[in-house]
Every structure is written in C-alpha cells, then in structure tokens.
Amino acid sequence: MTGTDDQDTLARRFEEHRGQLRAVAYRMLGSLAEAEDAVQEAWLKLTRADAAAIDNLGGWLTTVTGRVCLDLLRTRGTRREQPMDETFVPDPVVRPLTPLDPEEEVVRADSVGIALLVVLETLRPDERLAFVLHDLFAVPFDDIAPVLERSAASTRQLASRARRRVRGATPPADTDLGRQQRVLEAFLAASRAGDFEALVAVLHPDVVLRVDAGALARGAAVSKVVRGARTVAAQALTFSRFAGTARLVLVNGAIGLANAPADGPASVMGVTVADGRITHLYILADGDRLKQLGPAVGEAERPRPSGAPAAGQ
C-alpha cells in the first residue's frame, strides 16, 4: 500500500468520526466556526501521529479535540474584542421546519439546546471539558485527566461541580415539538397583530429575554437582557414590524424563529417553553455571525416550493 493509500484510508477513518468531533467542539465552544477549526486541528494532529499505534481512534480523536477546545477557551479572552457577558448568545444551529425522517429525529434528539450552551459559557474551561466529555459523551475520567493534567479523582470533582451548576441554572423545558410550535405560533400571531395582552399571556411572568447584537454593540442598548412578561412584551412590540418576515424553524432541535428579509438575515431566536409559556428567549442579531451561519437562516425561514426536497435530501 502506498503512502497516498494510507493517507486516503486515514482520511476515511477520520470522516467516520467527524460528526461526533464537531458535536464535542460545538458544545465546548458554542461557536460553529471555531468548532470546525478545532476539528480541522484534530485532523492535522492525527496526520502527524503514528495512527497505527492508536488502538481506539474515536476515543483518541475525541480527547484530542477536547484538548484543542480547552486551549481555545483558555485563550479566548485575549482573542475577543470584549469578554463574554450576560448578553452573549451562542451560535444557533438552524434547520427548516419540515417533517423529519427517522435519521433526522435521532439528530434532533441529540441536539444541545441554546439554554444549555448559555450555561456552559459560565463554566471554567477545565470544568466545561470535564463535564462535556464525561457527561455528554461518556469519556472515562481516566482518559480526561491527562488532558487536564490532573488526577482522575480531581477530574471527577470538576465534572461534579460543573454538573451541579448546570442542573441549577438550566431551565426546565417542554421537549414536545407540537406544544412548542403552538406556543411560538401564538407568540408570532400576537407580535404581528400588535396585541400586547396576547403577548403577555404567552410569556411566563418571569420570562428572560437575552439579545446579542455583537461584540461591538455589546453593552449598548441593542444588546440587552430584559426580564418580566410585560417588559418583554413591550420589547417585542417595538420590533413587531419585523414579524412579517419571521418564520418558524428548528433552532438547536427546538422550535424557534428566523427573521431573514430580502436584504439578508436579521435575527435568529431560540426559546425555552415550559407549561405552555415561553420562559426564556435567546436572540442572536449579530449580522457578522449570522452571515457565518451560511444560507441556512434564509433558506430555513422561507417556504419551499411544493414538491421541493428538504435540506439534506
């Protein structure tokens, strides 16, 4: 077998694991672009390693990807124009709201919600790594410990501390898409009609709205956190003129909204629904980051012609 054949075989083996590696990196970083960079770096590290000596390629790649993400998290503060604050919204994964085939249902079931990603942003890098690799991907502590340069017992404690923080901060959510859709349809109808009381009725009394308009705007009036049903409803009515171009989509596996007028994507909104009301809204309105999401935002919100295949078909 030639060197080229060996490289092709290694590339095929790597591709078998790319999906999981991307999932690990996305949960670690909350950024789709950075996740792709991390996966690419894992591939480069594999090409420089003795692949024949790796017994468990999937496990090796997962821990290597985790280490790359850990390094990115540790240096993130020096690379960003401003530090993270409570207005930050992670990159959403947007898909059209179409009937899902069984394979897509599995993907949706494995989706990570925006709410969890927001909580993960509050963890220290080492806590986040221990929690993501162990609790979300079942990597043994003995394999995580060398990445953190800690003992397995110390790594277990990190994951336990992170787990308590995640459980305490992640809001309860209704996972039924049908119930989510009814709530979002009521929200959208009330927004389009300018019906303040109808908006209040669909919002939890203690609802929290988080708007991320980008690093340059963070801290300004356009990036904000708003609390309370009547205050959030008033905020929604302020932007009701945009409701006409908003459409239901899947945002990280749950029902959300994408607003993509003819001149380009304007926002993506993920929500948490519980007991028939919206408890949290997460709006990404950063134009630069929305463009990096690719055509999915615009395509997802526009009705497809009759008979057109769904994305990925």
Rank of each mutant, 00 (worst) to 15 (best):
R80Q: 11
E103A: 15
L148I: 07
D71H: 13
A38T: 10
G113V: 04
E16N: 00
T87G: 10
E127H: 14
V139I: 13
V106Y: 10
S111E: 14
P83V: 04
A25N: 02
A152P: 13
P140F: 00
R95G: 00
R76P: 03
T47W: 03
L129T: 12
R76Y: 06
E121Y: 00
V107L: 14
P90Y: 00
P96Y: 04
R18P: 03
R18V: 00
S151R: 11
D71W: 02
G66Q: 09
A115E: 14
A115M: 03
G113N: 04
G113M: 02
E103Y: 11
L100Q: 08
A49V: 04
A23E: 08
K45M: 10
Y26N: 00
P90S: 09
G77C: 08
V93Q: 09
R12N: 01
D37H: 11
T63K: 05
G30K: 07
Q40L: 13
E15A: 13
A42Q: 08
T75L: 11
R80L: 09
A35F: 09
D126E: 15
D110Q: 14
E103W: 12
F141Q: 05
E104Y: 01
A53I: 02
L120K: 05
L148F: 02
A52D: 09
L29Q: 04
L57I: 03
L10T: 14
L97M: 09
R67K: 13
V24I: 15
R22D: 08
F137S: 02
A35E: 06
T87F: 12
E16Q: 11
F88R: 12
V93A: 08
F14G: 04
H134N: 15
E36S: 13
V112A: 04
E15I: 05
V139N: 01
A38P: 12
D71G: 14
L21S: 00
A109D: 13
T75S: 15
E36L: 05
V139D: 03
P83I: 08
L46Y: 08
L133M: 06
L70E: 02
V64N: 03
P92N: 09
T122N: 07
W60D: 04
L116S: 10
L10Y: 01
L72K: 13
R128M: 05
S31L: 02
A138V: 07
W43N: 02
A109S: 11
T65D: 03
L61R: 01
L133H: 06
V107G: 04
L29Y: 08
D142I: 12
A42V: 05
E105A: 13
T87I: 12
G66P: 10
T98W: 01
T65W: 06
L120P: 05
P146M: 07
L123D: 07
V118E: 03
L117I: 09
C69R: 09
M84S: 12
E103V: 15
